[in-house]
């Protein structure tokens, strides 16, 4: 080491400094300015500290220990897991239901293409508006979701998470329905609005009674009011006729408004 100092502090002075003994002001001042510029005296001071001032040494050790993790570049923290990111949009408990809903749509298309009646009513058209509801039933459901209580207690629980999951359901089911509608030559407009309206009604009703019950109510009403008459009679039910579209628009608006008003309903068990 290149030492430019001619004189150095005595070991006795360094020990007194380490012990924090009283040292005259001018001596202390010159010692500290010397230590600042003299590596060898700093090294001697560092050697003396554990013996002369164990508590200071312990404090330094503790501080090092606390700082160490942020100073060393430890093993890289892994990226967020794939499943955890996916879970932001859909709970694993929903997956079978969403897949089930998509399968129902595919089956309806298959039935339509194999047993098509000329001028008949496509099954897809009769079923499409309630198919997403099957997926919605599992969006916020205590009996289906093992982590229901954990999730419900978090700050993100509530309408925000509910709508994210609803979007996920629609994102899976809607493309299937659109393709189904194209293959059977049905206009998407006549079922798109009933579809959104049924989804919104389910959620709004689910803020009052449990969501799975709300879904059951909506599916039952649809089956009795639209599906059964559509299958049993030769007429196209008025609910899926073009004239009903504005009515469904109004239903959707009302249900969405109710849902907004009851936004805080999905945060308790």
């Amino acid at each position: 080491m290149n030492d430019q100092h001619k004189t150095h502090a005595s070991i006795e002075l360094i020990r007194r400094y380490a012990r924090a003994d009283a040292i005259a002001g001018e001596v202390l001042w010159s010692l500290e300015s010397h230590l600042e510029s003299c590596p060898s005296c700093r090294a001697r001071l560092a050697e003396e500290v554990p013996g002369q001032a164990p508590r200071t040494a312990a404090l330094v050790d503790r501080t090092w220990e606390a700082l160490a993790p942020s100073l060393t570049t430890g093993p890289p923290v892994p990226r967020r897991g794939r499943l955890a990111r996916l879970a932001g949009w859909t709970s694993p408990a929903m997956l079978p239901w969403v897949v089930g809903a998509a399968l129902v749509a595919v089956l309806a298309v298959a039935v339509d293409s194999f047993f098509a009646v000329p001028g008949g009513r496509p099954l897809v058209l009769l079923l499409a508006p309630v198919i997403p509801v099957l997926g919605i039933a599992a969006v916020w459901t205590r009996s289906l979701d093992p982590a229901y209580e954990l999730v419900t207690a978090t700050p993100r629980a509530g309408l925000y998470l509910l709508l994210r999951r609803t979007v996920a359901v629609l994102a899976v089911v809607m493309p299937v329905l659109v393709v189904a509608g194209l293959t059977t030559g049905t206009s998407s407009v006549v079922w798109l609005l009933p579809c959104l309206a049924c989804t919104a009604v389910t959620l709004a009703l689910g803020s009052v009674i449990r969501l799975e019950r709300a879904a059951a109510v909506v599916v039952t009403l649809w089956s009795l009011g639209v599906l059964a008459p559509g299958l049993l009679t030769s007429q196209l039910p008025v609910a899926v006729a073009p004239v009903a579209v504005p009515v469904w628009g109004a239903v959707f608006a009302v249900a969405a408004a109710v849902l907004m008003l009851r936004a805080r309903s999905f945060v308790r068990m």
């Binding site: 982590a147 999730v151 700050p155 993100r156």
Partner: peptide, 26 residues
Amino acid sequence: YLPQDFGFYRRFTVREFVEYMAWLKE
């Protein structure tokens, strides 16, 4: 909060599970 009958998603890894909860807790 750790509920008494605490349920979790069995296919998640420990890290994925805790990450998911961290996200839910903002």
